[in-house]
Amino acid sequence: MKKLAFHTMIIAFCCGIAATAFAQDAEKKEEVCFESRKGASEITKREIKPGWPNVKCSPKTGAALWYGDPYEGTVPMGKMPMLDKIPEGHALVKPRSEKLSILPMCGTACHNGVGPKFSPPTLPKDKKPTPIPTMESLLPDVKDLQHGRGRIWCLDCHHTTKRNMLVDNFGDPVSFDQPQLLCGKCHGDKLRDWRDGIHGKRIGEFASTGKKRWFVCTECHNPHNVQDGARNRGFVQLQPESPPQLPKGMKDANYEKVHPIAH
């Protein structure tokens, strides 16, 4: 009898532990919020020190609302012309290549330029894009390219033989982490404003030589869909955060239109 009671106790104890463990798992569900535009870059919420999270996310839209550590997951930007005044290590970016899921395949699987079938590598004969079903299923955006209004095609931006790289005006490869070197080919005025901090976004220290994280072009703009169809705006639409409290006595936002104010 005593033995039975002992076993029951052990089982009950184990159940208790398991239940609390499950409960903790449910609580510890990762909170991931997006930064500028949805799908471009995300941060996972965690505690840097007690009561101090790395990021606060919006419960309504899932957007990042507050940075506890603005430099998380960043690497030095690399060489940029005309940015020599900024001390070493003070210009940081979040590497884009880690976010692009098919990038590791790009240079090796299909577009390596030296595959067994293509020796010497067969390069496109003209600048008319041929629809490739595999490519379109991997990246649906390319089916309807919304950039350049039909005046540019894939290899104006992507390197011909090194497909995991972009290309500059001289045909030299440019890293996906430095898209500004590519975009500045056409959008020179925007590049100049971005370099001076007028266009785009930077977080960290506000002094002109301070340590900052720079948001690169593709963190805010989707290069394959910059026009966004009929909207023709560079930034996609977002869900807004909740509106403020209505003033006391006001039933709804249209109140003043229904009850006119005297002049």
Binding site: S36, A64, Y67, P70, K201, E205
Partner: peptide, 26 residues
């Protein structure tokens, strides 16, 4: 030396903050 919170979260980078006495500031 840190940017205000509203500057850091603006998704379109419309908000700019800096030192008016520094001719190189944003």
């Amino acid at each position: 030396g840190r940017y205000p919170a509203c500057v850091e979260v603006c998704p379109v980078g419309a908000r700019k903050f800096g030192n008016l006495l520094d001719p190189e500031s944003e």
